Simulated assay, not measured.
Amino acid sequence: MPQTDINNPEAQRQRVGYAIVGLGELSAEELIPALRISEHAYLAAVITGEMDKGRAFAEAAGLTDDDAYTYDDFEKLEGREDVQAVYLVLPNNLHREYAERAAKIGKHILCEKPLASNLEDAEAIVAACQSAGVKLMTAYRMQYLPEAWHLKNAMAAGKLGPIKLLDSIHTQTEQEAGIWRLDAKQAGGGPLVDVGIYCLNTLRFVTGLEPEWVYAALHQPENDPRFKEVEESVSFMLGFPGGIIANALCSYGADKTDSLRVLGENGSALLDPAFVYTDLKLEMRMPEGQTVVNFPAYDQFRLEVDHFAQCIKDDKPPYSGGAEGVQDHRLMAAIYQSARSGERVKVEPLAGQNVAGQDVFRNTENTPQQLKPGR
C-alpha cells in the first residue's frame, strides 16, 4: 500500500487519530511505521516519560512539538478532538492505570497484550471502558493475520479431518537481568505472560474453542540472577472439548523458536515461523497433497490498527475485545495454579458461557473486514 499523505489535513479527518503511549522499540520500529501506511488511521500524538524524547519522536514522525506529551500531561489529550484512540505500549502493570485514565477522558483504547498484569486489573479495565462508553481492543496480532485465518478456516471446514492434537512453541533468551520483563511486579509473570500468551491465545483462536482443563509445570533456576522473581520456562497442556489436546512450551532461556502445529485425522498444518512480524510460513498437508500457502507482503500492525479504527468509525465492537483479554488472564492464572500444585486444574465456564460454542469471547459479528472467513 502506498504511504498515506500525513500532511494532508483532509485525508487525516477521514481517518482515526491515534496517540501512542510509550515510546519503546515496538512503537519506534513497528507501530509508527504502520500508522504511516494505514488506510483508516494515523499518528496524531505521542506520550512518553521525557519531553525531549517525545519531541524527537514527534519530529521524526512529521508531527509538531505540541503533539508530544509526558505521562503527567496525559489528561491534556481530552482537548484533542483529533485524538480518538490511544495505543497503550507500556509495562503490563501500567495498563490498568492508563486505560482508566484514557477511558475517563473519553478515548478508545487499543492495549498491548496481555491486557494487564493480573486478572483483577484486566477485569477493572473492561469495567472502566464499559462505564465510560469507550471501545477496548486487546492487541492480539495473530487474530488479524491472513495465515492464521487461513488455518482457522481450513480447520473449521474440516479440511484436516477431526482435530486431534496441537502444539505450539515460543521461546527466546533474555540476557539482561533487571529489565521489566523479568520484574514480577511490572510484568505479572515470566515468559508465560509475554511469549507464552501467543501460544495460549492462538491455540484458542484457531480451534475457536475454550479449554476445559489445564495442566502445567515450570522451572525457575535458583542461581540465575535473571530469574530471581519470574520463571525461566513453562510447559502447559490444554484440554479442549471433544478430546482435543494442545501442548505449549515457552521460555526466556531457550534459543528463539516460534511455531504452531495442528494434527487432524486426515491432515496436518504447520505455521513456522508463527509469531514473528514478517515472513510467516504456513504449510498444509491434506489428502490432495502438501502446499505452502503464500500471501502478498503486508504489515501486521497496520491490519491491527486499521481494524480498530474501522470499529471506531463504524461504531462496532472490535473482534478481540476486552473479554478476550480477560479470558487469557483466567487461563494463565489456572496454568500457574496447576504448576504450583502439580495437579490438573478444571476451568469452570463463566455464567451463561456456551462451552460448546465457537469463539465465545470474540465479537464474531465484526470479523476483521479484510480477513473475512473464506478469503
Results as ranks from 00 to 15, higher is better:
residue 308 F to K: 01
residue 152 K to L: 05
residue 144 Y to C: 00
residue 334 A to T: 03
residue 360 V to P: 02
residue 339 A to H: 15
residue 141 R to Y: 00
residue 96 R to S: 09
residue 332 M to R: 07
residue 139 A to I: 00
residue 176 E to R: 10
residue 356 A to D: 14
residue 46 V to M: 05
residue 344 R to Q: 14
residue 237 M to D: 02
residue 187 A to R: 04
residue 92 N to P: 02
residue 49 G to T: 03
residue 77 L to W: 15
residue 101 R to C: 09
residue 184 A to H: 03
residue 193 V to Q: 02
residue 64 T to Q: 12
residue 195 V to C: 12
residue 252 Y to N: 05
residue 129 C to F: 05
residue 223 N to D: 10
residue 11 A to V: 11
residue 37 I to L: 02
residue 166 L to K: 12
residue 12 Q to W: 02
residue 252 Y to W: 11
residue 320 S to G: 04
residue 201 N to P: 00
residue 360 V to A: 13
residue 74 F to P: 10
residue 158 G to Y: 11
residue 96 R to N: 04
residue 102 A to Q: 11
residue 116 A to Q: 13
residue 226 R to Q: 13
residue 99 A to D: 15
residue 148 A to N: 08
residue 124 A to F: 09
residue 152 K to E: 08
residue 119 L to V: 01
residue 17 G to S: 04
residue 152 K to W: 13
residue 349 P to A: 05
residue 172 Q to H: 14
residue 2 P to Y: 07
residue 271 L to G: 06
residue 8 N to K: 14
residue 293 V to D: 13
residue 47 I to F: 04
residue 142 M to V: 01
residue 331 L to W: 15
residue 313 K to C: 00
residue 244 I to M: 10
residue 335 I to C: 08
residue 275 F to N: 11
residue 36 R to Y: 01
residue 218 L to S: 11
residue 22 G to K: 01
residue 311 C to F: 06
residue 272 D to A: 11
residue 99 A to W: 13
residue 89 V to W: 00
residue 89 V to T: 10
residue 217 A to S: 05
residue 153 N to A: 11
residue 287 P to Y: 06
residue 156 A to I: 01
residue 318 P to K: 09
residue 160 L to Y: 15
residue 369 Q to A: 13
residue 355 V to W: 06
residue 120 E to T: 03
residue 66 D to Y: 05
residue 139 A to E: 04
residue 322 G to T: 01
residue 215 Y to W: 11
residue 76 K to D: 12
residue 216 A to L: 03
residue 43 L to S: 02
residue 275 F to A: 06
residue 224 D to N: 13
residue 311 C to L: 08
residue 259 S to N: 14
residue 71 Y to C: 05
residue 212 E to P: 08
residue 77 L to F: 10
residue 362 R to K: 14
residue 32 I to H: 08
residue 249 L to T: 01
residue 328 D to L: 12
residue 192 L to A: 15
residue 269 A to M: 12
residue 271 L to D: 12
residue 329 H to C: 04
residue 230 V to G: 01
residue 270 L to W: 07
residue 292 V to A: 09
residue 94 L to A: 15
residue 173 T to F: 13
residue 203 L to T: 13
residue 59 E to T: 04
residue 132 A to S: 09
residue 126 V to P: 00
residue 115 L to R: 04
residue 349 P to G: 14
residue 96 R to M: 15
residue 142 M to A: 14
residue 369 Q to K: 11
residue 156 A to H: 09
residue 147 E to Q: 07
residue 136 L to M: 02
residue 332 M to F: 01
residue 112 E to N: 13
residue 371 L to W: 06
residue 52 D to S: 07
